[in-house]
Amino acid sequence: MNWTPVLISLFMIAGPVAAMQIEADPRSIASFMDKSLTPELDILQVATDISADNHLVFQVKTRGEQTNGKNSDYLLLQILHEKTYLLLLPLNKEEGDKILIYEGTLQPENHKLSKITGEFREYNLSADFTVKRIVRGAEFTVPLDWINYGADFNFDAYTIQASMQGNTLQINKVYDQARKGRKEEKRFSAITLLNKICSPKKR
C-alpha cells in the first residue's frame, strides 16, 4: 500500500497542532532535522528531567555520533539564567568526557534566546556540573541548588566549531542549533520549568 497520501494528510492535520504544543513546553526542544549536516552535528531533541540526586538533567540527542574526527567540534548546551552559561563536550569521543564551562554576560541580543554572542570566559564555580555521553548525544547536569528560582531560565543546544584562547572561548562556526527555524520563544521562569517537570501530565 502506498502510505504517502495518508502520511501527507496526517502531516497537514496534525503537524501544526503538534508543533504548537511542543513550542509551548519549557521542558524540551524538538529540533528540525537538517540533512545537509553530518549526523553527529544534527541536533534532534533537547529534553530535561530531574535526577534522583537533585540535578537538572539536559539530554541532548543528535542524529548520529562521532567516534573520531575534528577535535575542534563540540556539542554545546547554552543556559540563559541571569548570565549566559555554555557547557561544552567534544564531539570526538577520543577527546574524553571532560566538561568545559564558560560564562558571559546576558546581552540584550542573547537575552532573546538562540544567540551565542559576546565574550565567554571559563567558569570556575562548576564543580557539580557534569556531562556524560549517551548513545547519539550527551547528558549535561547542573545542581538544583545552583538555580535561582526567582529568575528566568531558558536553554538551547548547538553543535559548533570552537577554539580556546587562554580562558576565553572562541566560537568559530555554528553547525546546528536546536531552536533553528523557530520563531522567537516565550521565556520561562525557573519555577515554571520545575513545575512542568514535576507534573508532566496534562488535563
Binding site: A18, A19, I22, R27, S28, F32, L44, A47
Partner: peptide, 13 residues
Amino acid sequence: SSTVVALTLLFTQ
C-alpha cells in the same frame, strides 16, 4: 522530517 521529530518527541514526553 519535522513530523517524525515532533512525533518522536511527543512519544518521548
